[in-house]
Write a protein that binds this DNA or RNA. Sequence first.
DNA 1: AATATAAATGAATGTTCATTCACTTATAAT
DNA 2: ATTATAAGTGAATGAACATTCATTTATATT
Lengths: 196, 196
Amino acid sequence: MRARDEQKKQQLTEKAIEMIVKDGFDGLSMQKLAKAANVSPATIYIYFKDRDDLVRQVAIHAVDKMISSTFTGFDPRMSFAKGLARQWENRMNYMLDNPLHARFMEQIRHSPLGVEVFRKVKEEFSAIMKEFMHGAIRRKELVKLPLEIYWSVAFAPLYQLVKFHNDGKGMHDKPFTLDKKLMKTTLKLVIKALTP
Amino acid sequence: MRARDEQKKQQLTEKAIEMIVKDGFDGLSMQKLAKAANVSPATIYIYFKDRDDLVRQVAIHAVDKMISSTFTGFDPRMSFAKGLARQWENRMNYMLDNPLHARFMEQIRHSPLGVEVFRKVKEEFSAIMKEFMHGAIRRKELVKLPLEIYWSVAFAPLYQLVKFHNDGKGMHDKPFTLDKKLMKTTLKLVIKALTP
DNA sequence: AATATAAATGAATGTTCATTCACTTATAAT
DNA sequence: ATTATAAGTGAATGAACATTCATTTATATT
């Protein structure tokens, strides 16, 4: 027997993300990926069933990694302001430290694969977020709202800001850089919106 | 001489959007598109220089159409609350009436082509939106903010809601439908966030 | 009605694609 | 040290791809 080289799978995963971010889904080919990762095309098929399975696995891996990162130092019993701040920090730090992954996930999220991939990953995650939200409502720190509205107001602005940052451009092609101060300013607005 | 059949270009454009929304960018092939639009593959090259030009033109067309729709009944000198409400209504109506276009644009926006396509279209658009924002700030109806923060808080939540709606699912695979009432609730929160 | 012009075509063209295959190599277990 | 097993390979395969080409067809102008 010979053991699998998990580093090879990792290498394939990272190169695939690079290629997709650079050239889109139609820029990913198995032969180019093999070359980029220094393996034979046939080797890819040891780790992935086919192209479709590769994209799915890579997507699930990326989303998983990002979602775990949002929970460091977070407890759903935290106060609303504290908990949301922690979530924003975690998400922002992760996406600014891993711009390739961030862009990749945004691409996946809005592609035909998006719904499926995010569903697979979100179960544990959204249970915790639901607990956090309901706790905050009980303590009257948060307006009573449908989960989707809460989510849209609480997080969509952050993702848009990160997108501006990773594009390097704001609204008029003007350079844009997201920093902690801008993030905090925006977070304050969001908390104001959601506080009773 | 023989005149170009603009209906053919229109047909190609619509079918291309359909194919990309259904199967992603890698699901669009010239031969399949030709078949779907009932023309010969060679005909495509009369209207579009090559595949890349096709995708770009289709994207610019779609973004253009949507952006014009946001301005019906809108005047940048409107009060902040009225103007933002009109923008939200216009955008929501357009995206719910044209779910294919909405999904297509979200896909483009987050693809490697996104930055370039939206830049081309946004010039006139963002001049008007800037005027609207600055007027509102002058009248103290709106907190003074960098354009990008304003944008992220003012519009990102709406796009996320529309995405939930067009996916047909909210946070836990629970069916989700966006209606005027939910939209108004969310808009109120956003206005609360942005009002001094 | 004749003509000139560009639209429109179906069948090629050469390329790139995903995937497989016959084979070699590394290594864990004996 | 031997062996069994699965990792790993480079070259091949056939399908699908974007694009072109030699013709045919429609039509605006004369």
